[in-house]
């Protein structure tokens, strides 16, 4: 479904060149929930942003479905982006638009008629259980509700892939679980491939099937999530697993 070959990306900073991604190779299967985990600055955000070219890769090939993302021109890229949903840590909802207006936006972009838009938005808000907030503005919503709007908006044009850029990192644990539950249901219902980046092991354990650990712009470990928890091979992974277990022990002792 998604294949990444030899992906590299560097940034010019006032302190010199920083290699954010170094020769990344990755394969993600149709219908998978694939997690990318790493510490802050490891390059995971750059990686996911390269997938829809919000960040332009320096070199490498990215394929999603039958499209070679890295060789598309601007107008082709716009078309393909309509089929790649994305949700964000800070939701990035449009404050000047109602919930309806937010979810309708990608449909307007895709050129649907008013009637089609109305029907589709109703369907989507039902899916994310927000029908009672149709005419509310984002400022009137809780964090969890905002992310539900974000998800509805990302799914509007029936994407093949959903990219989740730390989508639960700004939410409390309870809301996080509810959002993850929603993502898993959507994954099953629509056979939607989800790529999510996170720094929380809990997120991986709850919904991901496969995972890549990224450190200093390189993938250090990759495989099924259970494998990672049972046999962490690198220090970073051990650190993540360890901190996760500490957290669980703490929870039990409360």
């Amino acid at each position: 479904m998604i294949t990444i070959t030899g992906l590299s990306k560097s940034f010019q900073t006032p302190y010199g060149k920083v290699d954010a991604l170094k020769n990344i190779n990755l394969e993600i299967k149709q219908g998978d929930i694939f997690g990318v985990i790493g510490f802050s600055g490891a390059g995971k955000s750059t990686l996911i942003r390269c997938l829809n070219r919000l960040e332009e890769p320096d070199s490498g090939i990215i394929r999603i479905g039958e499209h070679e993302i890295t060789s598309l021109n601007k107008s082709q890229l716009r078309e393909v982006r309509k089929r790649i949903g994305m949700i964000f840590q800070h939701f990035n909802l449009f404050d000047s638009k109602t919930v309806f207006g937010n979810v309708a936006f990608p449909l307007e972009v895709a050129g649907l008629s008013k009637r089609q838009i109305k029907n589709r938005v109703e369907q989507l808000l039902e899916l994310v259980e927000l029908t009672d907030k149709t005419n509310a503005y984002p400022a009137q919503l809780s964090g969890g509700q905002k992310q539900r709007v974000g998800i509805a908006r990302a799914l509007a044009n029936n994407p093949e892939v959903l990219l989740s850029d730390e989508a639960t990192s700004a939410l409390d644990p309870k809301t996080t679980y509810a959002i993850l539950e929603l993502l898993r249901n959507i994954n099953r219902k629509l056979n939607l491939t989800i790529v999510l980046i996170t720094h929380e092991m809990d997120v991986l354990r709850r919904i991901c099937n496969n995972v890549a650990v990224i450190e200093d712009g390189e993938i250090t470990e990759m495989g099924p999530v259970q494998e990672l928890f049972l046999n962490p091979r690198t220090d970073t992974t051990r650190l993540f697993v360890q901190s996760d277990q500490d957290l669980q022990l703490n929870n039990y002792s409360i």
Binding site: N52, L54, R78, E79, V80, R81, K82, I84, M86, F88, H90, N92, L93, F94, F105, P106, V109, A110, R153, A156, N157
Partner: peptide
């Protein structure tokens, strides 16, 4: 205006002018 909102629109395939 938060750049995240602009990126969100571009990520949905919106044209610059839109």
């Amino acid at each position: 205006v938060d750049k995240g909102k602009i990126e969100a629109a571009l990520a949905m395939g919106a044209k610059s002018i839109t």
